[in-house]
Each structure stands twice: as C-alpha cells, then as structure tokens.
C-alpha cells in the first residue's frame, strides 16, 4: 500500500512539474543576447532556447534538427532582424511552419523594428559585397540597444501572454534600472575614446564604434563578406600607418592569422570582442558582454597605448 501511495505521489509530482513546464511560454531566440533579455523580462514565465551559442559568424550558421524542432513548438520567436539571421532563419521558419511565430503573428518579435540602421545601401548590389538591404544588422552590439531590444521583447511577450502583463512590465522596469546603471558606467568609460582609430575585420562593430566616438579607418575584409586580397591588406596597413591606427577589432570567428599579421605590421594589437553573448568567457548576459567590450576597449585605447 505504501508503495502504491508513493508511486501515486511521484506520479502527481511529475504531472505537476510537467504541467508547470507546459504552462511556460516556449520562446526561441536566435542569439544568446536575445535569450538573455527574454529571461530578464520573462523570468519564470518563459522557457528560452537560443539557436546559436555565441562564437558563430552569424552569416554562416547552419540549421540543426534541434532548431527545427524548437521552432515548431515555440510560442514566441525573437530575432534581431535586418537580415542578420538570413542564413538560417527563413529556411527554418518555412519548414517549421508554426503559425504562432510567422512574421505578422503575435509570437513573432523582431527587435530591430524601428531601429535606425547604419550603412543602408542606396543600391542593393553584390558590387558592394555582402551588403544587407536594410543596413548594418549588428545592432545587438550597440551599447544603447539594450533598452530598445528589451522593449520589443516585453511587447511581444505581452501580446502573446497578456495575463502576465504586470509581471513583464515590472521585470522590464527592473531590467531598465540595471541598464541605466550600466549605460552610465559605459558612458563614463568611453569618454576618453572619442576620435580614437581602429580597424575592424567585419562591419560588426559599426554601432559600437559610433556610440563610443571611435573612427573606423578600414576593414580587413575587402568589402562586407569578401575575404581580403593581398593588395587590400597592403593598402590597409599603409592607411593604418598613415593615420596612426594600431588597434584591430575582431570577433572570435574572425580572429585568424590575417588579423594577427595586420596588427603586427603596424606594431599594434588585435582585440577580440564578442559579437554575441556567450562567445567569450564571462559574457553570459548582454550587460556582462557589454562590460567586457568596454573593458577590452579601455585596455586597448587607453591614452598610454592608443594613438
């Protein structure tokens, strides 16, 4: 009899746990940055999955079966947009065929909606390289974008789960306070960087540099998405020497021999920055990632070391 009661209790507990899990909103975010923001705003109400892990070149992500399954079960889908995830999201969305998260459905959240994009091409042509028709998509690396992304996440969660509106609004307000504190911290740090010069590998850090007042002298890629040629590198190195630029910003995926050679040629250094959360140790949250970005930029661009 005891065994029977125990089994029933275990069964009831398992059922309750399952029901609780089933009650949560299933949210799929394309990158860990968005997954973190969803957790911040959604708290215990959401069960979040990120499709990437943090070190990927976001233009080269390969869809996996688990991505397809996650999207097919999702209540909410959160993407950066601006074609950042064009390599893997459209195919997944078409195949997963989940009406709750298709563009236009309440569960589709595009955090770049309304964002003023940089580098929007006047003419979309591959003559300009792998340009994005809607402009530079790496808005998740703008230190001022945290609130913008979180607002859209909050609105999306409320659209799908209006019953928890107060919870989402309260958690957003809490997160906003921490963002305010972090932004004040970052603003103080970057005051000394105005006018500093850097070279980037890919145009990922355009928003970051704009926010910090840093000039991007050139990029190692000949054009967006186009690998460098020897001539291009020679011209770039000459330009760096001419302008006194000694810092090369690179993401984990692009931190290769070419980056090291360019930095060495100008007697400078390569600075590896995350291009999404999780790519570098200590960047599990978006605020922590931005803290690390500012710390590394500070080390590289401090007056004693910079041009």
């Amino acid at each position: 009899m005891k065994t029977l009661v125990l089994s029933l209790l275990v069964g009831l507990f398992a059922f309750a746990t399952d029901a609780q899990a089933a009650d949560k909103l299933k949210v799929v975010a394309t990158i860990p940055d968005l997954a973190d923001i969803v957790r911040e705003v959604g708290g215990e109400r959401v069960d979040v999955t990120a499709l990437t892990k943090g070190r990927e070149n976001l233009h080269l992500v390969t869809a996996r079966p688990s991505h397809l399954v996650a999207l097919s079960k999702a209540d909410v889908f959160v993407q950066v947009g601006l074609s950042l995830e064009v390599a893997f999201v459209p195919g997944l969305m078409e195949t997963a065929r989940n009406p709750r998260i298709q563009p236009g459905a309440p569960g589709f959240v595009n955090v770049s909606e309304g964002w003023e994009a940089l580098d929007k091409p006047a003419n979309v042509s591959r003559q300009a390289g792998d340009v994005h028709p809607q402009g530079n998509p790496h808005m998740n690396l703008d230190p001022r974008a945290g609130r913008f992304m979180a607002e859209r996440v909050r609105d999306g969660l409320i659209r799908v789960d209006a019953g928890s509106k107060e919870l989402y609004a309260k958690r957003f307000a809490d997160y906003e306070k921490r963002l305010d504190e972090a932004e004040a911290r970052w603003s103080e740090q970057r005051k000394a960087w105005s006018g500093k010069k850097v070279v980037v590998y890919h145009q990922e850090y355009g928003y970051l540099c704009r926010a910090c007042g840093i000039d991007i002298v050139g990029s190692i890629e000949a054009k967006p998405g186009i690998p460098p040629t020897p001539n291009h590198l020679a011209e770039l190195i000459a330009k760096m020497k001419e302008t006194g630029c000694t810092t090369v910003l690179t993401a984990p995926w692009s931190n290769d021999d070419t980056v090291a050679r360019v930095a060495e040629a100008v007697g400078g250094k390569a600075v590896e920055l995350p291009n999404q959360c999780g790519g570098i140790a200590g960047t599990d949250t978006w605020i922590a990632m931005m803290d690390l970005v500012h710390r590394r930029l500070g080390e590289a661009l401090s007056p004693a070391k910079g041009p």
Partner: peptide, 11 residues
C-alpha cells in the same frame, strides 16, 4: 554526417 566548428566556418 555533418560537423561544423564553433564559428560555423570550418565544416
């Protein structure tokens, strides 16, 4: 069988 490195570049 498909394998990809953590950056998605080498496959």
């Amino acid at each position: 069988y498909g394998w990809s490195d953590d950056t998605g570049t080498r496959k």
